[in-house]
Computed example of a mutant assay.
Amino acid sequence: MSKNIYNLLNETNVDLDEYKEQDFTNFEKIKIKKRFRKNINKHKYNKKIIVSASVVVISIGVMGTDVGVYAKEKLQEMAYDISRALGISTDLDEYKNIINKAVSKNGLEVMLNEVILNNDEIVFSTTTKRAKNDESEVASISLKNISINGKELSAFGGGGIEKVDDYTSEQVMSMTLFGLEEKELKGNVDIKITFDEAYCDNDEVIKGPWIFKFRADGSELALKTYEVTLNENFTFENGEKLELKKYTSNDLGQKIYMKANIEGEGYDVYVKGHDELGNEVSFSMGNCSMNEPILSMDNYGGKYKAKELKLKIYAASLKEEAFPSSSKYKQVGEEFTIDLNN
């Protein structure tokens, strides 16, 4: 299973059909639920470490209210340290914006610790503290919206939580942002993050909001992001098109950006192959966008020094099954090569 933050999303009981306001397509609902279910049985449970699966459509402030939390061995280190939570050994300090601002509301203090801007995503850590006479423990906090330079954005993501003691929890969340201007996060930006609710282990809901306004800079990581333009086109068996746009790599991980012309229920897509040394690599969908899928490299986080990747695309239609078996995935087109020597 991937060490990156996207694959910390595991099975949950989110009922997407109960949302009063939403712009999820059926495809996106399927993809969200599929990602929550993926690989949950492959990992051991640990009482101290939990993962909260969060689904956010920030443009309209939708947040799942039936939030499941699950033990996760990948977060055995302190969750508020972003690099550890992402499973990355690389030191990320040069990319961190230290915020350390706390807001208290209705007996709960939320502190925003650190923020990293990674081109089209935001990664941040928080600490929640309850009064010591409270008996319930905070299991997760709900992100209502994110604004960049005064513009409210849509986003998709999730995060991991660690219980520090009976009154304190620490959380890392990663959100892919939609609606950004090109290169908008590659410099100094004004950011507003609003958390609206906190969910406790005894089903108590603490109402916010906890609002944070600050400036952050993503230029350093942007400068160290290696990018390869891809010019590969594929056709699904029903005639719909898939275009590979670019490959990116930096200290937070590797991604393949695609553009699709999809109607209906869509496809689940992954990419698998090997590098020039024969090491196997794979990429799985890292967001829920049907027509602009982003695939993130599995089982790796941080610097990657391969010179060449030979890859194949596999896809399974979601028209008949929300969770296709492995036998349903068929190769799309021929093998392609990404040259990383440039």
Rank of each mutant, 00 (worst) to 15 (best):
residue 230 L to M: 07
residue 164 V to S: 00
residue 269 V to K: 01
residue 320 E to G: 10
residue 317 S to Y: 04
residue 231 N to F: 08
residue 84 R to E: 12
residue 263 E to H: 13
residue 107 G to D: 04
residue 100 N to K: 11
residue 243 E to V: 09
residue 160 G to Q: 03
residue 97 N to A: 03
residue 93 D to I: 15
residue 135 E to D: 13
residue 288 C to W: 14
residue 253 G to K: 00
residue 303 K to A: 15
residue 181 E to K: 13
residue 257 Y to S: 10
residue 243 E to L: 14
residue 216 A to E: 02
residue 223 L to F: 12
residue 168 T to D: 04
residue 256 I to D: 01
residue 92 L to T: 04
residue 268 D to I: 04
residue 274 H to P: 01
residue 28 E to D: 09
residue 84 R to H: 11
residue 293 P to N: 04
residue 197 E to P: 00
residue 134 D to M: 12
residue 15 D to Q: 13
residue 169 S to C: 08
residue 75 L to R: 06
residue 264 G to Q: 01
residue 146 I to P: 00
residue 142 S to Y: 13
residue 148 I to N: 06
residue 141 I to D: 02
residue 305 K to S: 14
residue 268 D to A: 15
residue 321 E to M: 15
residue 40 I to C: 10
residue 35 R to T: 12
residue 37 R to M: 10
residue 338 I to A: 01
residue 293 P to S: 05
residue 235 T to D: 09
residue 113 N to R: 15
residue 30 I to Y: 05
residue 331 Q to M: 15
residue 215 R to M: 14
residue 25 T to R: 11
residue 78 M to A: 05
residue 326 S to L: 12
residue 26 N to W: 09
residue 38 K to N: 10
residue 167 Y to I: 02
residue 234 F to R: 03
residue 88 I to V: 10
residue 338 I to F: 05
residue 68 G to D: 11
residue 266 G to L: 00
residue 279 N to I: 03
residue 197 E to V: 07
residue 269 V to H: 01
residue 199 Y to T: 08
residue 1 M to E: 06
residue 289 S to A: 09
residue 321 E to K: 12
residue 243 E to N: 13
residue 334 E to Q: 13
residue 95 Y to E: 12
residue 30 I to W: 00
residue 293 P to F: 01
residue 166 D to M: 09
residue 78 M to I: 11
residue 91 D to H: 14
residue 141 I to P: 01
residue 253 G to Q: 04
residue 145 N to F: 11
residue 155 A to L: 14
residue 66 D to Y: 05
residue 239 G to K: 02
residue 108 L to Q: 02
residue 2 S to A: 10
residue 178 F to G: 03
residue 106 N to F: 02
residue 299 N to Y: 08
residue 328 K to G: 01
residue 103 V to S: 15
residue 156 F to T: 08
residue 161 I to P: 00
residue 60 I to R: 11
residue 132 K to M: 07
residue 55 V to H: 09
residue 60 I to V: 14
residue 232 E to I: 09
residue 342 N to S: 12
residue 295 L to T: 02
residue 17 D to Q: 10
residue 143 L to V: 06
residue 32 I to D: 01
residue 4 N to P: 04
residue 166 D to K: 05
residue 210 W to D: 04
residue 225 T to C: 08
residue 309 L to S: 06
residue 116 I to A: 02
residue 298 D to H: 13
residue 333 G to H: 07
residue 120 D to N: 10
residue 88 I to D: 13
residue 185 L to G: 01
residue 282 S to C: 05
residue 47 K to P: 07
residue 2 S to G: 09
residue 211 I to N: 15
residue 101 K to G: 04
residue 71 A to W: 02
residue 90 T to Y: 08
residue 249 S to W: 05
residue 180 L to R: 02
residue 315 A to P: 02
residue 195 F to E: 04
residue 73 E to Q: 09
residue 142 S to Q: 07
residue 147 S to I: 05
residue 313 I to E: 03
residue 256 I to S: 00
residue 169 S to I: 14
residue 56 V to K: 07
residue 77 E to G: 15
residue 93 D to R: 05
residue 179 G to E: 06
residue 30 I to G: 08
residue 132 K to H: 14
residue 69 V to N: 06
